[in-house]
């Protein structure tokens, strides 16, 4: 299908996805309940900060960081890999393939359609931020906000392309969900979700800079808490989009090879 045709299908896809998000709002709420990890982490780090600040992190800095981590997780996470595993195993994928639209695009749009509901979820942390911290640490310049927007979008895209890579592996093996579980655990440790990347030991930090994880959560969080100067922020966002391109190409290659293996069974 042509690019124009795809673009024309997008609003309808988005509407379907949004209706689904509204219908399954209880599930969304449940999912949010299971992402309270930043708050648990804040408890640990604030206990640390009560005794002495860590580097430039005092209690307020940790609060801003983990509120931002909660917000960024809501904005960037998606579940395409689970969806793909499910659809491959159930044979639903064959129905998707009948549509004149590449399934990858529809998965992306369906995930994005949850965003308006997600924005509702981040209201409480935003209100907390403004009430307790009075807007401190937020970017002060248009460039700062622009880079955060780019970094958040890049974070979403990076998580999505990684999901597609792992999800397409389900076309080669029975299920790639365990691999996704391992990816999730690694993300928890290395992305800055549990520990600000800045606080890692130097040598580990150097390694983490070269792994994709810290660009999915840590970087957008650092941009929202005005951690970097403009030049450094721009450089990191560029690296992030580089990773997006890398996993995007890898995902497409895997998809093209894998779909040839696909023999729909079941429904």
């Amino acid at each position: 299908m042509s690019v124009r045709g795809t673009v024309r299908a997008l609003p309808a896809l988005f509407k379907v996805g949004f209706a689904e998000a509204v219908a399954y709002r209880a599930e969304l709420f449940v999912w949010v309940l299971s992402t309270t990890m930043p708050l648990v982490m804040y408890v640990l780090w604030s206990a640390v900060a009560r005794e002495a600040p860590v580097g430039r992190y005092g209690d307020r800095e940790f609060l801003a960081y983990f509120l931002a981590a909660f917000i960024v997780r809501q904005l960037t996470s998606n579940w395409a890999a689970w969806q793909m595993n499910f659809e491959v195993r159930q044979g639903i994928l064959s129905m998707r393939l009948l549509r004149p639209l590449t399934p990858v695009v529809s998965w992306a749009v369906e995930t994005l359609a949850y965003m308006p509901m997600r924005l509702l979820v981040i209201v409480p942390p935003v209100v907390t931020w403004l009430a307790v911290l009075g807007g401190a640490f937020l970017p002060r310049t248009v460039a700062g906000w622009g880079l955060f927007a780019l970094g958040a979008a890049g974070g979403w895209l990076l998580v999505f392309t990684i999901n597609v890579c792992v999800g397409t592996l389900s076309l080669f093996m029975k299920s790639s969900l365990k691999l996704m579980d391992a990816y999730l655990a690694a993300t928890f440790v290395f992305s800055g979700y549990l520990i600000p990347v800045e606080l890692f030991p130097d040598r580990l930090r150097a390694v983490v800079e070269w792994l994709p994880f810290r660009y999915t959560i840590g970087l957008p969080v650092e941009l929202l808490t005005s951690h970097h100067g403009t030049a450094e922020a721009a450089r990191l966002v560029a690296v992030q989009w580089g990773f997006c391109a890398l996993f995007g190409v890898l995902g497409l290659l895997l998809w093209r090879r894998g779909i040839r293996n696909f023999e729909a069974y079941g429904g």
Binding site: L44, A185, V189, L194, I195, L199, F200, P201
Partner: peptide, 8 residues
């Protein structure tokens, strides 16, 4: 994931 924050 449970031990790494303690290590740091």
């Amino acid at each position: 994931t449970a031990v790494s924050p303690l290590l740091v």
